[in-house]
Design a protein around this nucleic acid. Structure first.
Lengths: 113, 113
DNA sequence: AAATCTTGCTACTAAAACAGTAGCAAAGTA
DNA sequence: TACTTTGCTACTGTTTTAGTAGCAAGATTT
């Protein structure tokens, strides 16, 4: 699947509505995870691998390139970091952290941590 | 991949931190899309198929079952609908709509709609 | 009540995405 | 000069998703 660039055809929208491009992007494995972990601060490739337990290096690299082209992250001297745009996206989804804890309390195998 | 239930092992977290379970769930193709489209109001199976251009019925059904078990959606007389919990999740991500439009303006093939 | 249509799916196959592991070239360190 | 670390690439195998066909149950029409 090609990059979900707003304006071009993406999953869920032939016209490439920006929101659909974004949902396509965020709907890929580890996209949200990478952004989430980078919000803790810049990280080198291998540091990110550790923050994201279980991610394979090939996929990590793929995601990093995608997010870089789409200008959510950039490379700095100290590794990968969120761009201003990336941070503004994170600011929106940050409340998911608390939400997920509340959610966990009401679920079948309801445990939390 | 089994359901990402907080507390059990999920992608990105052996301990099943709720946020990781949530990111795993939302990182699956069409999870976010289904929630997004259901926020416009309840829909029958076939209506949802139409709102989500291009989704296959088998995957739609898989996602619906997952989201139902995880209590983000429920079935009502008029079809599928967000639960209160699902709506509270949507309230968090709703600003992505506007964000994505701003984002689109600054991108390579920068178009919008 | 027979035929037709709609709805909510299931079944199947092919294509794509992802995991898991190995390892290499370049840069840094001892 | 040898050894380590870093940022990846390559490869194989499994899992996910797309794409299409169609069926059983209920509603609607004739």
């Amino acid at each position: 699947m090609p990059l979900p660039i707003p304006g071009s055809q993406v999953r869920g929208s032939k016209s490439g509505k920006p929101i659909m491009a974004l949902l396509d992007l965020l709907g890929r494995t580890w996209s949200l995870g990478v952004i989430w972990h980078l919000s803790q601060g810049p990280a080198t490739f291998r540091q990110l691998q550790q923050r994201c337990e279980q991610i394979s290096p090939s996929l990590l690299n793929t995601r990093l390139q995608e997010l870089k082209i789409l200008q959510l992250i950039e490379t700095q001297s100290d590794g990968y970091a969120l761009t201003d745009q990336g941070r503004s996206l994170f600011d929106i989804i940050a409340p998911l952290g608390q939400w997920s804890k509340d959610w966990a309390k009401h679920l079948p195998a309801g445990s939390e941590s």
